[in-house]
Nucleic acid binder design. Structure first.
Lengths: 123, 123
DNA sequence: CCGCATCCTTTAGGATACTG
DNA sequence: CAGTATCCTAAAGGATGCGG
């Protein structure tokens, strides 16, 4: 009902790490939570054009289970839930740094344009 | 017929990088080719318990297309094909280094045993 | 030995409607 | 607002058999 077992056994550390970031939006979630530090569901969604509610919820729950994301629920009306990175989430993000740099290099090589996300840099 | 389009557009470098390593065995292929430097198909397969011929071929082809893997075909009988990393493959592997370290840490935290790969350390 | 073609199952991802 | 439930399609992955 919930999700496939996941979580190993792994052959090497790369395996173990890729497991928790595999998922169409997980890298981006990590990045956005790094940028805004604390973020509500709706705002996070706004920052990620194209993601569906289902996928965002699902990915956030998995990342919470994996100890990457902290979910703070406020018993208010209307409800408020704030997401942030845990310590493990932060270290993972740092570990992803060099990969991100490599990815940017790759985009330059391939001439692949990144999609503009509310931050046009050429007016 | 070949494969889905892939290759962007990406939201950030992480996206672009994760795209080329997403695939059940790609991280491991990268690692094994890093270890043995040059590797034949059969040997590569032996080093990766559980992978099917189809998946190994498919992943290797995609990684070749992505400029990560070099495929050297020798016109001999019986045929011989040697795989190795390209420069981009090597830099990607280096970029994956911190992620691998993080993954090992994660396995320690979770108590997840890595599977033994032809190297039993406890008799 | 290396790999392609085919068929099949499983999983990921998306659209939509509904709820506390 | 922040989800859950259901249904559906597409893609990944796996088993097996054939071919150069």
């Amino acid at each position: 009902m919930a999700k496939a077992p996941r979580r190993g056994p792994y052959i090497c550390g790369i395996d173990a790490a890729l497991d928790v970031v595999s998922g169409k939006w997980k890298g981006l979630i990590l990045w956005e939570l790094h940028v805004c530090r604390v973020c509500r569901f709706a705002e996070l969604r706004r920052r990620m054009p194209g993601v569906s509610e289902k996928m965002l919820t699902q990915h956030l729950r998995e990342m919470e289970e994996d100890g990457l994301v902290h979910r703070e629920v406020y018993a208010e009306v209307p409800p408020r839930v704030e997401y942030s990175l845990t310590e493990h989430g932060r270290t993972l993000n740092e570990a992803l740094g060099p990969l991100g740099v490599w990815g940017v290099e790759r985009m330059r090589r391939e001439g692949t344009e990144a999609v503009e996300v509310a931050e046009p840099s050429h007016g």
